[in-house]
Simulated scan of single mutants.
Amino acid sequence: MTPPPPQRSLAELRALTPARVGLGRAGASLTTQALLDFTLDHARARDAVHASFEAEAIAAALTGQGMRALVVTSQVADRADYLKRPDLGRRLSRESRELLEERGSAACDLLIVIADGLSPAAVNAHALGLLDALMPKLAGFGIGAVVVAGGARVALGDEIGALLKARMTIVLIGERPGLSAPQSLGAYLTFAPQPGLTDVARNCVSNIQSAGLSFEEAASKIAWLAREGLSRGTTGVALKDESGLQLATSLAAPA
């Protein structure tokens, strides 16, 4: 008879996850330490949402690496407007649209957009590191300018991609902060971008952060989706991420 698995203590279970489990209580309330931890994480999440987006610094770093960088903004007036009017974050400001129309280039396979989203802090911390891991994996593709977009929602990449004649956009954007992940980055891939598309047309690689997907892991997934999406002419629900299956198959193959 197989012996039952050993019982784990709450302390061991808490060590396996950043989620709040086994917090304990003091009477009908949380313990003081649990309440203080929750308050701190809540403050970090709020700070991430309202952090300043270092758009010019990111663009300067890209230029220093030999890339062509363009800085644009959406139609939102300020951060409060961004939070209240998601629709305005999906459209370019008039000045930015004119800039892209003036500096538009020949058609390209891939266009990368770095956008602040709901966590500018995540983009400030992780976007350049992810891009360093990603660019070598995209060798062989025609890559247009890197567009740094402020006040942006994911769908802003559709208008940008259409204006710059990209076959596919890759939008690197700050994700909505959680109480255990205030600086999480996401990557959204959209084939044939154009205004009016919804998330059904996109693939997403999420949770890119120190406690989630590493830059190398995320870059491998993004590059696989980009390659397969361009080859098949689609992204979204019609394209399933099978990059892990491909890796498992290669590891299982005899030497």
Rank of each mutant, 00 (worst) to 15 (best):
L111K: 07
L111I: 04
I112H: 11
V113S: 04
I114A: 08
A115T: 03
D116W: 01
D116H: 01
G117F: 00
L118V: 00
L118K: 00
L118F: 00
S119F: 01
P120H: 03
P120Q: 02
P120T: 02
A121F: 14
A121S: 15
A122E: 02
A122D: 06
V123L: 06
V123C: 05
V123G: 05
N124L: 12
N124R: 13
H126E: 11
H126S: 13
A127R: 07
A127I: 04
L128N: 03
G129W: 09
G129E: 08
G129L: 10
G129F: 09
L130G: 02
L130D: 02
L130V: 02
L131P: 04
D132T: 14
A133D: 13
A133C: 11
L134K: 12
L134H: 12
L134A: 08
M135P: 12
P136H: 12
P136Q: 02
K137F: 05
K137Q: 15
K137A: 13
K137G: 04
K137V: 04
K137C: 09
L138P: 11
L138Y: 13
F141P: 02
F141H: 15
I143Y: 10
I143S: 09
I143E: 06
G144E: 07
G144S: 13
G144V: 14
V146A: 11
V147K: 07
V148P: 11
A149H: 06
A149Y: 09
A149I: 08
A149Q: 08
G150I: 01
G150S: 13
G150N: 03
G151L: 05
G151V: 05
